[in-house]
Every structure is written in structure tokens, then in C-alpha cells.
């Protein structure tokens, strides 16, 4: 349903406020049937989940090494003792994550925009942007971390910086390359007619990009962006290779103290807990987007 333009009162609703329609027996029957179907599918999914989980637990417990694994990976006492330090480390992860996300959004948008510039004058910029995405999408993050974290400080151009600082820079460099490509895909996916309409209204190339193309592009690629965000959330843990005491490094220290792997499991669960809200948010957002674009349709 598109909103209609009403001319000369032709859309007057002469009987607004009249008593609502009472559904017929037939319709009530149909609604009851649909409700029953919904209940049934909920019950079926519940039952299948219970069966599946039970089988999984039984299989685990039946395995010959279960007692040893339980002891060295799932020890409640070690978990309790290591939790505060791992949580402390996670706080660093969280701060690095926020700083890196902000950086990635800006750098990626700039790179994506550079790649869409037309005209021979912009060739060097386009080439630079293309080269950058090629290089950093191709290089393993851990190598970027080593080069940025140990190599750049060696130039002695900057004062002494935290390992977390260089880790953030490395994350921004790597993830911006991926996210820039996502943005570019979104920009390309906006129908050319939108650009035509905006330019014919007199908007400049820049205005068209900023006000018409990018908002639509970002909307199209939001689920993909959120996906990259979740991926980065756990890759933040890799800054531990530079010596930053984040959740992973804290867990490692605890492991060494307790001779028990449980702190790794604790850190893993905390990372999952950190990612869950964003994952749910992504699902919700995608559903809302779908609902808005296909209002009132069944297929």
C-alpha cells in the first residue's frame, strides 16, 4: 500500500467511527486453526530441542575422557577465581572495540567513497583506495598486528604508546578494508535512477552521495556491517599478541597459575555474551527493515 494523494476530499471516510466489524464464524474458525498451527510448531520445536540437547549431553558424558576434560576445562572453582581478572581484561577489549569501530566506520566510508569517484583526475585516489583494500584484505590480521605493533614504534616517530593503541590501529586498518568493500557494494546496489533523480533536482555529486545514495546504501548493508562488527568483536582478542592484558591474555595468565584451562572457557563465554546483544540486534533490525519495505504482503 502506497500512501495515496487525496484530491478534493475524494478519500473522505464517511463512516469513520462506526462499530467495528464482528468476525464471522468462518473467520473465527480460520483464526483458531492458524493459532493451533502456531502452537503446534512451537511445541514441535521445543520437543526437538530437548531431544537434541539430551543426546548431545549423553554423548559427551559417555566419551571415555569426559572426567578429565571436565576437570581441566570446566572446573567451577577455577572459573570463579579467574572471573574478576578476565572481566578486567574484557573491559580493555570493550574499549578497544568501541574505538576501533568508530575508526573503521570513518576510514571505510572515506575509502568506499574514494573508490566510487569518477573522472580521470581522481585516478591516483581511486588506485590508492583499491590498493589499500587489496593489501589489507589479503594480509592476515596477526601479521598486521605484528608489523604495526612492533614495527611502527621502532620508527621512533611517536612517543611510547600502549600496546592496545597499536592494536587498535591494526584492527582499524584491517577491518576498514573489509567494511569499505561492504559499503561499496551498498553504494553500487542503490538503483541508478536514484542518482538521476537527485542530480536532476540540482544536487551536486557530493550532496547526492551524502543525502540520497549513502543513506540507502548503509541501510542495504547494515546486516553485513553488523556481521563484520561481531567478527571484529572477537578479533579484538588478538591484540593480546602485542602484550596488552585483555581478556584473552588475562585468561592465559590465569591458566598458567591454575594449571587448568577453565579460564579460556570463561573468556570464551564472556566473548559470546558480549556478541549476543549485537547478534540479536542485527536479527531484529533485518526483520524490521523487511517489514518496512514490504508492508502488508504475505510473500
Amino acid at each position: 500500500m502506497t500512501p495515496e494523494v487525496r484530491l478534493g476530499g475524494q478519500g473522505d471516510r464517511s463512516d469513520v467511527g462506526r462499530a467495528p466489524h464482528e468476525p464471522s464464524e468462518l473467520e473465527l474458525g480460520r483464526r483458531a486453526w492458524r493459532r493451533k498451527q502456531t502452537t503446534r510448531s512451537v511445541l514441535v520445536s521445543l520437543a526437538s530441542t530437548v531431544v537434541f540437547a539430551t543426546l548431545l549431553v549423553l554423548a559427551l558424558r559417555a566419551s571415555p575422557g569426559w572426567a578429565r576434560v571436565q576437570d581441566s576445562f570446566l572446573d567451577p572453582a577455577t572459573a570463579r577465581e579467574s572471573l574478576p581478572r578476565v572481566l578486567d581484561g574484557l573491559w580493555l577489549n570493550l574499549r578497544v572495540l568501541l574505538a576501533a569501530s568508530a575508526g573503521v566506520l570513518v576510514v571505510a566510508l572515506v575509502v568506499a567513497t574514494l573508490r566510487t569517484l569518477r573522472g580521470p583526475v581522481f585516478f591516483p585516489l581511486r588506485a590508492l583506495a583499491a590498493g589499500y583494500t587489496d593489501l589489507f584484505r589479503g594480509t592476515p590480521l596477526i601479521i598486521v598486528l605484528y608489523v604495526i605493533g612492533f614495527g611502527v614504534p621502532g620508527l621512533q616517530l611517536f612517543g611510547r604508546m600502549d600496546a592496545a593503541f597499536w592494536g587498535t590501529i591494526a584492527l582499524v586498518l584491517t577491518y576498514s578494508a573489509y567494511v569499505a568493500e561492504v559499503f561499496r557494494a551498498g553504494i553500487d546496489a542503490v538503483h541508478p535512477s536514484q542518482r538521476l533523480a537527485a542530480r536532476s533536482l540540482g544536487l551536486t555529486h557530493g550532496q547526492t552521495m551524502r543525502r540520497v545514495v549513502l543513506p540507502q546504501a548503509v541501510r542495504k548493508v547494515t546486516p553485513a556491517l553488523m556481521n563484520d562488527f561481531v567478527a571484529m568483536q572477537k578479533d579484538v582478542g588478538l591484540i593480546s599478541v602485542l602484550g596488552a592484558v585483555d581478556a584473552v591474555r588475562a585468561a592465559q595468565i590465569e591458566v598458567a597459575q591454575h594449571y587448568d584451562f577453565t579460564p579460556y572457557v570463561v573468556a570464551g563465554l564472556l566473548f559470546v555474551a558480549l556478541a549476543l546483544p549485537v547478534i540479536r540486534l542485527t536479527d531484529w533490525y533485518a526483520a524490521r527493515l523487511r517489514a518496512r519495505e514490504q508492508m502488508g504482503s504475505l510473500v
Binding site: M1, E4, G11, E27, G296
Partner: peptide, 24 residues
């Protein structure tokens, strides 16, 4: 009929692109 009089919705109910609220 005028825009918004229900022509398109009627067609969509006919090929089940729209749930009807009542009737057959």
C-alpha cells in the same frame, strides 16, 4: 474507482498475496 478505493488490495486477496480479515 479512485486511488485507495481498494482495487489493488482486492486483486491481491484474490491470489493470496494478502490475508483476508473475513469472508471467502
Amino acid at each position: 474507482g479512485a486511488s485507495g478505493s481498494g482495487k489493488s488490495t482486492l486483486l491481491r486477496t484474490a491470489n493470496l498475496l494478502e490475508h483476508i480479515g473475513d469472508g471467502q
